[in-house]
Amino acid sequence: MNPAMNAATTTPAPAPAPTQTKASSLLAGARDTIPMLVGAAPFGLIFGTLASAGPLAPWQGQAMSLFVFAGSSQFIALGLAAGHAGLAVIWLTTLIVNLRHMLYAASLLPHLKHLPARWRWLLGFLLTDEAFAVMTGHYARRSPTIPAAPPSPPSPLSHWYFLGSGLSMYLNWQAWTLAGLAFGAVFPGLSDLGLDYAMAATFIAIVTPQCASRPHLGAALVAGSLALVFKDLPYKLGLLSAVAVGVAAGMLLMRVSARGQGVRP
């Protein structure tokens, strides 16, 4: 490890200052999403490239990014459309591929349900894997020791942070889709740079501290291993099954460890 890196790590992360404003929360959300923006770039680029080469008109490729804003399902829809699948098949597949967002929404809901309706409509649209990861990290930092506990009083500006994260992902996705549509064929090597590893590194940074309790570590290990076993299942079904079994394993471990200590969960 080089010395510059060490020097950087000794600087404490900026603590949430009491002087937070809407704008600073918005910017903090966007800032904490930067690695995700980098990680999503190659996917947006590939999507744009494929969309320009496939059965859709370029404006339709951009429209899909603008309105659907869910990468995996966009890729799959392109593939299905190229194979002349019917609309019902495309919509049903989209539903299954995107079901995981419902889990994210359920998981984040306790932090958001107090917000005015227009905020909930908007943040719902901006919900992605990446925004979920960033928000998970954000809320975990606010109540660090007990990720399982119900949230302490909702922080007044977290929705601005969410907006900053979601909006930056959204604009980033539009820009890279457009770049792919326009130049994808010109720079074919751009998507092989390995930028997508930024996403994995960020997820590790978010998940590792949350695995401090044995049930959470166990749940993560089970889900991670099963995701490998199931990785060839189509339409994210492998992911959903791995998560289901992982969650069950975590709940089981929670009961076992509670019994071991003579405490009710």
């Binding site: 994210y104 998981s107 695995c211 889900a223 992911l239 791995a242």
Partner: peptide
């Protein structure tokens, strides 16, 4: 358990 499981499985 959703955050740790989903993010790991991805």
């Amino acid at each position: 358990f959703v955050p740790v499981t989903v993010l790991t499985a991805i």
